[in-house]
Each structure stands twice: as C-alpha cells, then as structure tokens.
Amino acid sequence: MNNETHTPSSDFAKEIALIPGGEVINKCIQCGICTASCVVACVDDQYRPRRLIQKILIGKRDEVLKSDQPWLCMTCRMCEERCQEGVSPAEIFHAVRILAVKEGHIPKVFQITVEKVLCDGWMLADAYTDFNEDEREDLGLNPALAWNDTFTKKVKKKYLAGEESA
C-alpha cells in the first residue's frame, strides 16, 4: 500500500465523539452551509470547516491534531446557528483543541495566554499601568481591580499540570 495515501478509519471520529462538544460529529452530512457562512473561510481560502470535519470523519488524526486550522475558528457560532443537522463545527473544533493540547499541540500564543491567565487570575495584569489607574479615577471608577489569583492557580494545578508542554 502506498504510504502517502490515507486509509479511512472511524476511530478518530469515535474519539472526538467522547469529548464534550464533539458528541454529534457524525450528524454532519457535509452539506457545506457552515463553510458558506464562515467569516474566516471568506478571508482565508485554506480554511474550510466542512473539509476539516470530513478529515476527522475519515480519521486523519495526526494531521488534524497538529494543524493550526482548529485554532483559527473564532467561535462566532454562525455555523452552529445555520447547521440544519444540529452540528456545531465551533464546538467540534473546541473538542479537537482539547485533545490536541493533551498530546502537546498548542499554538504558542494560546499557551502563553493560558499561563498568564492562570497565574495572574486575569489576562491583562501586565497591561494595567498607573496611567490606566488614573484614567479610572478620573471617570469615578475604582482603580483597585481586586483580581483573585489563588483560585486560578488551583485550577491550573488540578486540570492543567504539565498539559502545556514546551
């Protein structure tokens, strides 16, 4: 058998179906309305939600988990709104992301931001300067934002220890 051609298998789809968000992947009938509605597909001619889902359905596990594609979804959910079969490509791609992360595939920017959020308790600790504090005071708002980082550190320990790999 040719090593470059893929042999279809339903195992990957079964795997995704077990992850929250991926349960109804097999309802996809490849009609294409998601891709037609997708704003990202409009501006990026390589991004095709329908194609990505068919790749999952035929079992291209490695390619899909290592790909950037699932991370380009904006979760705007227009596809979910329009799908007639009750499939949410946005949710499926979330499920793919979760699996990808477990196997060590995560875009750098996501990895860094997750780290940041869980350590500081929120995303923009670095960006909050004195200037911003003054601005808030001038507007009559409380400059002390009182973010809690204890809980997020607990969450990191419980769910994401060693998950964000190098």
């Binding site: 992301r97 979760i98 992360v101 959020v117 869980l118 973010w147 997020t152 769910y159 998950e163």
Partner: peptide, 28 residues
C-alpha cells in the same frame, strides 16, 4: 454594584484547553 475578588471567566484561551478548568473559572 461592584464584584470583589473576581477572576477571568476563562473565555477563548482556557476554554480551548480544558472543559473543566473553564467551567470552574466561570463557575466561581
């Protein structure tokens, strides 16, 4: 009224890496 001692809701980033972590952060 103000909310004190809040944390990030987990949108977008934590959301993409762990379902339970996301649920915990918003849940709090």
């Amino acid at each position: 009224v103000e909310m004190d001692d809040a944390n990030c809701c987990g949108a977008q980033y934590v959301e993409s890496v762990s379902r339970m972590a996301f649920a915990a952060m918003s849940g709090r």
